[in-house]
């Protein structure tokens, strides 16, 4: 819960008079342009940054207190793993800091490593991992012990589509099991898929909050991934209707199509199918923060 929370770093007022109660058992996505204060908000909730004014509580405990921290699993923007240590050592160190020790927890750590596709790498030093593997390990560490609150700063950063899918599923699973997830992302598609609520920050203030579609208008543009079996004049003609040109070298094309509103999307997809194109995925385009917020 945020009550008149303000944070000043140096001479900059990064967060100003935030008031918000994050609902339980839901995924809240904190959105906003660069410099809006998203990471600062998470860092304040975890106690890395002390509030300048106002208060913030984690399950009725003041932020920064050991009790409040013990309720939170935190994933920073940079995974922050101990690269000279093994994957298992990283998780067990985190566990020990939370007073979680014993064979049962080691089994849980093994289970999490397997869940995040890192089975067989328990004893491997983390510096040998790829970026995606590190991010998955960091997520495994964050969710260890099933903390009731998860703070995730750009959790899909550096992940391939399969890795991102795994993370999305894990976030939803965690919320289903009762955790409150508060996360930041620049990915509108991810935000829309995963969020129960969004919290829009602009210039350190709450611009609006609520359901994704109520807060933002992400469908001014749509990214369409097409499966193009062969180059035919029919397909070129179909693309031309949308001012698009087929990339000669690609079998799967990815195009940004601007529509006037989400009501136009079904007719656009129908036109594409009629034209011989096979849309594989349709995703929201970049979020326009201007005009967003109701």
């Amino acid at each position: 819960m945020l009550r008149d929370l303000s944070v000043t770093l140096g001479s900059n007022d990064v967060l100003s008079d935030l008031n918000y109660v994050f609902p339980g058992s839901t995924v809240t996505v904190v959105l906003g342009p660069n410099g809006a204060g998203k990471t600062t908000l998470l860092r304040t909730l975890i106690g890395v940054i002390r509030p300048g004014k106002g208060e913030a509580f984690v399950m009725d405990h003041p932020v920064g207190s050991s009790v409040a921290k013990s309720k939170i699993g935190y994933l920073a923007e940079v995974p922050g793993l101990y690269e000279r240590l093994s994957a298992m050592d990283n998780i067990l160190f985190h566990a020990r800091m939370r007073g979680l020790q014993g064979e049962g927890f080691k089994e849980e750590a093994n289970g999490l490593l397997k869940k995040y596709g890192l089975g067989g790498f328990e004893k491997t030093a983390v510096h040998k991992f790829s970026k995606g593997m590190k991010q998955r390990l960091a997520l495994a560490r964050t969710t260890f012990g099933k903390p009731p609150i998860l703070l995730l700063d750009e959790p899909t950063s550096g992940l391939d589509p399969d890795g991102s899918e795994l993370v999305i599923r894990s976030i939803r699973d965690a919320a289903r099991e009762g955790a409150s997830v508060i996360m930041t992302t620049h990915n509108a598609y991810l935000a829309r898929r995963v969020s129960d609520a969004v919290f829009l920050l602009k210039g350190g203030r709450v611009a609006s909050s609520g359901a994704f579609d109520d807060v933002l208008r992400p469908f001014d543009s749509v990214r369409v991934k097409l499966l193009v079996p062969a180059q035919t004049s029919k397909i070129r003609d179909a693309l031309a209707k949308f001012n698009l040109k087929l990339d000669d070298t690609r079998e799967v094309g990815e195009f940004l199509v601007t529509v006037s509103g989400k009501a136009d999307i079904p007719s656009m997809i129908k036109a594409m199918i009629d034209g011989g194109l096979q849309p594989v995925t349709v995703e929201p385009g970049e979020i326009s923060y201007e005009g967003g917020g109701k």
């Binding site: 890395v48 922050g80 690269e83």
Partner: peptide
Amino acid sequence: ERKTAEGLVAEPVS
């Protein structure tokens, strides 16, 4: 420097 301090400070320890 290795960006691990943030996670450490976030642990429930003083």
